[in-house]
């Protein structure tokens, strides 16, 4: 992905739009089927949307998630509680670990409020269903995949990317 330098505040800030993104790893004591993971992801999207509105948001742009596992990928999203949540994708077997990127874009509240709502929503829904949040990396996502890799290698790529997010950024070369 191109990594441009930030310049002036974007046009969207003039319209009161704030965005927040986070990558998390969730683990469950037992392998969990696709239907339950989709249900959790949908509930999470709605919970985050609800929390944003409770904090004063006027409109949900979208709350989106992309779930990666060694059994396949899923996505879930909502554009507001009244619109419901939708999920797609498939897993070819039950999984105990999943890697999730969540992107919340909301109008009417500041980014810090969007951040709180997103974090609380992820934790509340995941933990109520027996998942524990193992790692969370703000302003980050999973990138750089070899989609032809074996399942073991695919999971290793995810773990390596999470670990790399811990590394301090290298100073820019002059």
């Amino acid at each position: 992905m191109d990594t441009p330098k930030r310049q002036d505040p974007g046009c969207y800030t003039e319209h009161g739009v704030s965005g927040y993104g986070i990558a998390v790893k969730l683990s469950h004591p037992t392998a969990t089927e696709e239907a339950e993971i989709k249900s959790m992801a949908e509930e999470m999207m709605l919970n985050i949307a609800e929390k944003c509105m409770a904090r004063g948001a006027r409109c949900i742009g979208h709350i989106k998630s992309h779930v990666r596992t060694d059994a396949g990928t899923l996505k879930a999203d909502t554009i507001g509680v009244n619109h419901g949540a939708f999920s797609s994708g498939s897993l070819d077997h039950a999984v105990a670990d999943l890697y999730m990127a969540v992107n919340s874009i909301v109008q009417g509240i500041h980014q810090e409020e969007v951040r709180h709502a997103t974090l609380e929503g992820i934790h509340q829904v995941a933990e109520a269903r027996g998942w524990s949040v193992q790692t969370e990396k703000e302003h980050a996502y999973f990138d750089e995949f070899d989609f032809t890799a074996s399942k073991e290698d695919y999971k290793r790529q995810l773990e390596e990317q999470l670990a790399a997010m811990d590394q301090p950024e290298k100073p820019e070369e002059v």
Binding site: M1, G10, K64, S65, H66, A101, N103, I105, F147
Partner: peptide
């Protein structure tokens, strides 16, 4: 192009 720092859509299309 996405704001919010997580390019979910790009990843979905890439797949």
């Amino acid at each position: 192009n996405e704001i919010g720092e997580i390019p979910v859509d790009g990843k979905v299309i890439e797949e």
